[in-house]
Nucleic acid binder design. Structure first.
Lengths: 197, 197, 197, 197
DNA sequence: TATGAATGAGCCTTCATTCAT
DNA sequence: CATGAATGAAGGCTCATTCAT
């Protein structure tokens, strides 16, 4: 008897957490629905009450985590007037979140890079929101006279995001025998120098 | 016509070119061996005379393109004494190669990001060679007194590669209605400022 | 709106009507229980308070419609003494009922032909009652000296039923741009000539 | 090691024969591809080298059997000048073919009645060819003055086909303890009387 | 070397049915 | 009686890989 039937519990977060763990451990391609269901303690079919298909699990996992993060990030940034402080905060938090949740880091830095149209399209809106926050912060810094106004804000965003992303990916591939956040200070220093007036 | 029958020629480069085109058009996951074989004008089984499996095609495609590039890159860098010139050259060439071959760009920036162990491991040695060239150049610049010696060369490499990579990926996703190499100058300027003494 | 919630009413006829419409529109195989439940305005589980399984819905739909028809048919036939009049009436009514209810026609002529043992067995008793009525009428006609007594009544029944059935099926497949009952007269004429003394 | 690989043998007729037997024994719905493959002595995947999907097997089985039958039927009919002889021949052969191959009879009379659009559409062209032959024969008989010209040839065809079909279906359902062809004579007599001038 | 027909393991998804509420 | 979330068995189909020719 595969467990008594659970009712009235919201299975959505349970499944998302299970998927995160399974994806991190096995990779998206090798994470069969049955594995995720088992990990979540639900039946295979139950997954499909919450998700249209396997790809959507990955997309919704991203939305779930990043969507709420963006909300709190926006809230926190309001507290800071100085664009340099804001940018610092963004980089710091980005690295900290990944370091605190290695499964999440693995899923974000590796599995989410699936070259599957449905996944890329599903992720795009949220990702672009995050890009926008960075670009807005850069623009603010330019208005405040801290950052070089001759540089394209979009290009700077690519440099910032690209740098963080590569630092994070290297850390995931490494044995994680060093702290990810410990790289934040130097990373921010280089970025600031690079884009300052 | 998807390729006339090739005879008595080495089929290896033909297959690699075919794979590049098919991967770029359909994505790795949706590029069946039979599609690649058809595009190359050979039988399905012939592919397996040259490659152990599908993953190896992607890896060898990478090795084929990047391996020879690294050789010529090393040659060119020897001609330049100034680490700043060398770094400039690296960034420039990186972007230029991708811009000149959109299929290659698509495969490198998207399809090669497969979270499949065999692919990642296969690519690693060559990729690390490329990373080493960048790090060596950074160290040289530090010795020459141009770059800040207090910064970790490895971290700087991550920033440089991460930035280029993100700029390239954005371009691939875009309608490519702007020049990729046109971004090189600003990108290099930011990097230089960021890591200069 | 696919049916407002019914309360305190016998849901059996509601479900049967819903099933008829859904079967006619989607075919038996593509008519999920959830579709029928939605159309009937009841919960999926409610269906199983009235029917053992999906097949039984089809069978009981048949019983429901044909069973009561047979009762009234027998009643009507009693009014007629002449076997020729009786047979005429049977053919007429058969076609008329189908023409008046296109959903019913579709279900009877197509969906009910499921090669599923449970369905065939469930339908058989009622269908055989109908066959018996036809055969009895034929026998009566033979006794009355109208029909050729050398012909097997059972064979004649097959010819009569087969003819009506094929005429009806053709009509269902057609765009129904002609009247089904308009074929009754000619059909009866051929049959009568065929079996008359 | 499921048997040594068979090469250069045309597996198409082998699969079709296997499908006929499996469909007859289990019904279309309960005839898994793996069952058909096993019966045919090929791998599951091999089926899909010859058929797009399960439905197509049924359709092509019909085409295979009826298509060639129609060719020979047309040939034979040419030998006969009298429309009455032709019609006799058609009915006779129809019943004889089914009686000689009980598996075929079961598939034709029961399994082929699947209310699945793809199957109905696939069968239609061939079936209509057969209908046409019957209608043409009826028309010829009308021109030759044997059959009543006031009757619609199409309606007569429905009566003829419907009658044969019902006789055949009854026989399939029966324990087959009587000869199907033995019914031909009476059936033809009734039809002739019914449609004669 | 080259072929391409054949293989068969593997998995996502559906949906009839159940049962705790 | 009624609900509808949860179940989980079942199977059609794909496609990387093999190997007799």
């Amino acid at each position: 008897m595969a467990g008594t039937r659970q009712r009235n519990k919201d299975k959505l977060p349970v499944i998302i957490d299970a998927a995160k763990a399974v994806f991190a451990r096995n990779g998206f391609y090798n994470s069969q629905i049955s594995k995720i269901a088992k990990q979540a303690g639900v039946a295979d079919g139950t997954i499909y009450l919450y998700f249209r298909n396997k790809e959507e699990i990955l997309v919704r996992l991203f939305e779930h985590q990043v969507g709420s993060y963006i909300l709190s990030l926006k809230e926190q940034l309001k507290q800071l007037d100085d664009a340099r402080q804001r940018l610092s905060y963004i980089v710091d938090q980005h690295l900290q979140i990944l370091e605190e949740d290695p499964d999440l880091a693995r899923v974000f830095q590796l599995e989410l890079r699936q070259p599957i149209a449905e996944i890329r399209k599903g992720i795009a809106p949220i990702l672009h929101q995050y890009f926008q926050i960075i670009e807005d912060t850069v623009c603010l810094g330019q208005q405040q006279g801290y950052f070089d106004s001759e540089l394209s804000a979009k290009l700077i965003r690519k440099i910032i995001f690209g740098s963080i992303d590569e630092v994070a990916t290297s850390w995931v591939f490494s044995q994680k025998n060093y702290s990810l956040t410990s790289q934040a200070a130097q990373l921010i220093r280089v970025i600031f120098r690079g884009i300052s007036k």
